[in-house]
């Protein structure tokens, strides 16, 4: 090639074509999607918890999507029904994930609805799941001599118990658990006009 402008224009054209196909057309198609009323917007606390989920990089080990049973056995693991676009109407950034070092979490709030389980699991995963390789998050908790009024206390079992001291959840841990408990996309979705449709 000798013409730099032909090169640059051709290169731009190739990328523009892909932008139209994979960004612009989906935007038009998905715009018609109404949020599912069964998936309400996150509360302020849930959003604060979601921000911690994002900042601590939970997405690098946990997906939030259940794939179709015609494709894999995700549903047979009890992770819920196949996910649809309206399950994510309020999600920014998206947290679909690309890795399952740990289990899928899109329905963790339905599968594990116990707040104290989650708090203990965040403080020390191996206290409840011995084979877990999830990092412990002790910095989301505070260890002090005695609990004050309104403190949410976590009671780690042996060998993680701290005699003479109490483990108290910081606001971040409480918000994160609030967010995890909100993850429940188990109800059948209300009509999703665009999902899977041809353009």
């Amino acid at each position: 090639m000798t013409r730099i402008w032909a090169l640059l224009l051709g290169a731009t054209a190739a990328m523009t074509f892909a932008l139209v196909v994979l960004v612009a057309i989906p935007r038009v198609q998905l715009r018609t999607l109404e949020p599912d009323p069964q998936v309400p917007p996150y509360t302020a606390t849930q959003l604060a918890g979601r921000r911690i989920y994002v900042s601590e990089g939970c997405v690098y080990c946990h997906s939030q999507q259940v794939r179709d049973p015609s494709f894999t056995y995700d549903t047979l693991r009890g992770w819920g029904r196949p996910s649809v676009p309206t399950d994510y109407s309020w999600d920014t950034p998206h947290l679909l994930g690309t890795m399952r070092t740990g289990p899928d979490l899109i329905n963790v709030g339905s599968r594990l609805p116990d707040r104290s389980w989650h708090l203990l699991h965040l403080y020390q995963p191996r206290a409840v799941v011995p084979w877990s390789i999830m990092p412990a998050f002790p910095y989301l908790f505070e260890v002090k001599p005695a609990a004050a009024d309104g403190d949410v206390v976590v009671v780690p079992p042996s060998p993680y118990a701290l005699p003479g001291r109490v483990v108290v959840a910081r606001p971040g841990a409480l918000a994160l658990v609030d967010y995890l408990l909100s993850l429940d996309r188990t109800k059948p979705p209300v009509a999703t006009p665009a999902a899977g449709a041809a353009p």
Partner: peptide
């Protein structure tokens, strides 16, 4: 230039995107 730019959605195979993508 023309084929690579359309590859990205293979990171979401089986995911909740429109199937045609």
């Amino acid at each position: 230039a023309f084929f690579y730019a359309l590859n990205g959605m293979h990171h979401l195979i089986g995911g909740p995107l429109p199937t045609w993508m």
